[in-house]
Design a protein around this nucleic acid. Sequence first.
DNA 1: CTAGGGTTAG
Length: 869
Amino acid sequence: MASVEVRRVSREDIQLVQNLIERCLQLYMNQKEVVNVLLQQAKIEPGFTELVWQKLEEENQEFFRAYHLRLIVKDQIVRFNELLERQNQLMHHICSSEFSNGSQIPMRQLTVPHSLDHTLAIEQSTVAHSLEHIDSPLKRETVDPDLNSNLHDGYSLQQYTPAMDLTTHTGRIEASSNIPFCQNSNIRIIQGMNGQMLKQEAVYTGNNAVAYNANVNAFDARRTIGDVPVSPYNGVGHHSQPLNRSYADTETPAFGSLSQIPRNFSLSDLTSGYSNEELERYSREESIEAQMAFITGLGPLIDKFHQIGATRNRLNLYARLKSGLLNDIQTSVDAINLYKQMVRMTPPPNDVAFSQLLVRVVKLKHYSLAISLYRNMTALGFPVSDYILNTVIHCYCLVNKVDFGFSVLGGFFKRGIVPGVCTFGTLLKGLFKETRILQAQELFKKIIYEKLCDPGVVMYGTVIDGLCKVGNTTKALEFLRDMERTRVEPDIMYSVIIDSLCKDNMVDEAVLLLLEMIKKGIAPDVVTCTCLIKGLSNIGKWAEAKNLFKGMVDLGIAPNTYTFNILIDALCKEGKVKEAEHFLLMMTQHGQNPDVVTYSSLIEGCCLQGRINKARKFFDTMVESGIVPDMLSYSMLINGHFKRSQVDQAMQLFRELFRKGFTPNVSVYTTVLQGLFRAGKFVTARDVFIEMQSLFSIPPDFHTYCVLLYGLVESGSVDEALKFLHKLEADEVKLHTGKNHSELYLNEACPCKISSHLTQVQPYWWIHCGGHSSQLGEIKYSLQMLSSLVQRLSLEKELEVSIAANTEAAVAGKKMICLVLKCSFDTVEWLKIILFRFVINVDFSTIDLSMPKYGFLYNGFSEIQPSLP
DNA sequence: CTAGGGTTAG
């Protein structure tokens, strides 16, 4: 496709070359360079490139005039930098002592061309200003509103929200494919660019906008220094318009487009193998970098002016960097301060130093800051390594922006760095994290088939874990076996899979795997055993669980707090509090102290049996032994009181929470609301509901609404429930589910209308659960609600549980299965079939309904044969 | 010198 060869030149060829040329324009190449690059990288005949270039030039005269001007200035800067570097070296030779601050001034006057000087001044303040902003997120009054909002919520990722700007894209297609060289193609591009422009301002930090603005002025030959005072902050404070208007009104469109070249970047033809979607994102990131590319040459320059004598700090800093002691970086402010120092150093720190800083920032969990720093340092022209790029990708993944991670690939290609196993491993992980299994599958295939890198142990680990988390443990096991065939022993991956099998209630398989690993000489540890103990307990195999417990002790594997807590909790849930107490005793004998989790389990166990007094005793014992009860322990005790209809005591405890300095969270409030509704205290419930919102601004969640609606229905206030529902809808209150509230509890598709007859037996119930894995409680509650409804209604029909489409539905779905299987639904005769339907991006209609078992959840990897050449 | 995965509890 890339070559012209003998066949006739097609429209696509022209378009392709045009695209490539436009890409090169981003990098400020001249015609000769472009011709060479296209020849080397895309095997485009020089004559053809020249032809297209010429045509483009004819059609976009204004643009190219400006472009050439820009190239000239670029050369000047490059040369100027060289000179400065030499001068710098010479001066170091001459006097090794510190320079006075004043020494830089004559230098500047001596060498900097007039217009350039202006640029520098702006650029300088730009850098300082932007860092100032980063530096003081709390100084709101001094920070402009836009930046402030970004920084206020912890370097909000708003700025990295993908600008899904289809207008620019379509504009582009129109311009190039239909009428590649028509007169208005330029205009169309500009329109697109303007569209992009607006997005950019919303999306990027003011820093970019400012730098950009300075950039424009630097190359505006008609605007000299004294002419129009240039405000470096123009466009930042006022958001979209001013930046455009400041020049667009007075300049020709061509100048507008000049500053916005970074459009229409497309690497697709040079680097095949990425989807359009990825490229679209990729090009977006690339455009930022390209936009910055020019400024690149300026960074070091400024530093030399600014900090030519700052050798003192430097030594200090180098020592710190060298010793790898970045541990004194404890906050984001520390990191920014260090960064500022580094940026000003002469000679500048190398990529390793920046890498270390970024890693430190990542360790502090300031992912967005790390990304900001990366952007800033690239803008200033500091060297970037694969380590840094991988770290940045990692950051994007950690904030669930794997798409932007992909876009960083552009940074690799641009610098001629080959992305490696770390890069792809990280991206893979990112896709799994967002449960984009299909894409993960695609990527993995690509890695294998196209030999992008050798998937090492780590990548296998990623895949296995990802598959486990999504519920396809069977496939994960296949990968484990493949892994151990060729790789070193996968040690703890066994535990991962055993845990996953247990969570799927495939305990037999888990036990087999345990035996297998022992046979292979891989020693199980406390975690492996603990997982299995939990699995065995969950399916009621108490004898086996206890045997395993004994077995591990005999083998010299010391049970830890987790092990005991799991046993105690399982026993409590089974109503075997006595036995649980036995383990409580044993726990201390093994040198493991019971903690708040232990006691909470015991409290819950007692409450389940209605033994509220015993529960309180445990509570007191816990407090006496110096363990601070947390919200959950309170919540359980409160729930226990409600269960015994001891509303007063429950409310007393609830109020005690406040006195103890707790601010009840939404789940505590929901517990209380549920209790009040059950007790028929509707007025109090209403007050509490109001209090929770007005006093603490705690928004009700899915669970809360379920309680409210269910409570209202249960109490016979069906009409009020409906009214409530309608009010929510009228207020357009949306939950995280993105669903209307009616769907929370009822569904249009539900044959059972709430206002009709609740007592009527219905074949299907739909329960929509927000598929947030963190909201296990919701799912659990939904099931409880379901179960009690079913009991109430003597429902003896099939039950359909559907999970509303959600990215995390798969994870939630998996947990839901476990819960349902655990909820001893099977012991109740009324449940004949449990049918799960998970609506992710995949059609699960092909699932064998007679076997609602485990492996079906997601089979995305079924196509891949684990053992590949 | 600096980058990627992975296990247990209410």
